[in-house]
Nucleic acid binder design. Structure first.
Lengths: 111, 111
DNA sequence: TCCAAATATCAGTTGACAATAATATATCAT
DNA sequence: ATGATATATTATTGTCAACTGATATTTGGA
């Protein structure tokens, strides 16, 4: 890493860290991360997510509730279904980075 | 986000997610994130970190212990002091992204 | 060898998060 | 209005991570 980040005052740094940590906490759970990856690929409704991720419904809704309250995702009702999409572009940026690091195009390396 | 990531099989994706989540968990704590930022700026010893971050010693050592065991940091003894530095370049990449997102050069936005 | 400084480890407590089960709400079709 | 489907909420419980306090280990200097 280039050693030259913008110099930032300790107080501001703490503030930034608080924000960053809030986002990281949301990502730091395997099911929720996969969930966000799925939504990032394109909006999906709860039953689709339930099927693709094999998480059972109340748990899924609870997690989605967290993401909603934190402003990370948007919802849109279409008849009986509710579609989720990513709202916070910063989340997408982090997801991009994670893809780049942990999902290399050719070789997949498991633990 | 461009909708085109490398297509990755569900199993491999789960493996990648497991790895990513392990890293994210380490970052998803304010003190530990600040700690890593500090170390990323240049190697530092425990007492320096203790002073700069105002975390008391056993807690700090415990956190550093976690980072050590997970292969995220390297240690190097110099006399009575032990110096820490980042070992895992992937951590640096994530930290870079977080800086870009949450520590914009000019305007600092809190909360 | 003995002491002080730096760091690490251990045991106990607490608090936050996630899973589950049960129930509630909203929408559509009849 | 009634039933069925999709989603949300609530209460309960179990698990794990982090803080604290006390103690151990390592090193350098007297």
């Amino acid at each position: 890493m280039k050693n030259g980040h913008a110099i930032i005052e300790p107080e501001a740094l703490r503030g930034a860290a608080t924000q960053a940590v809030a986002a990281l906490k949301l990502l730091a759970n395997r099911e929720r991360l996969l969930l966000l990856c799925q939504i990032a690929k394109g909006r999906s409704c709860v039953s689709e997510l339930e099927e693709e991720l094999d998480i059972h419904q109340p748990t899924l809704s609870q997690q989605l509730g967290v993401l909603r309250r934190d402003g990370v995702v948007d919802t849109e009702r279409d008849g009986k279904n509710i579609y989720y999409s990513i709202r916070d572009p910063r989340m997408l940026e982090i997801l991009e980075t994670l893809y780049r690091i942990y999902c290399p195009p050719k070789q997949s390396k498991s633990k």
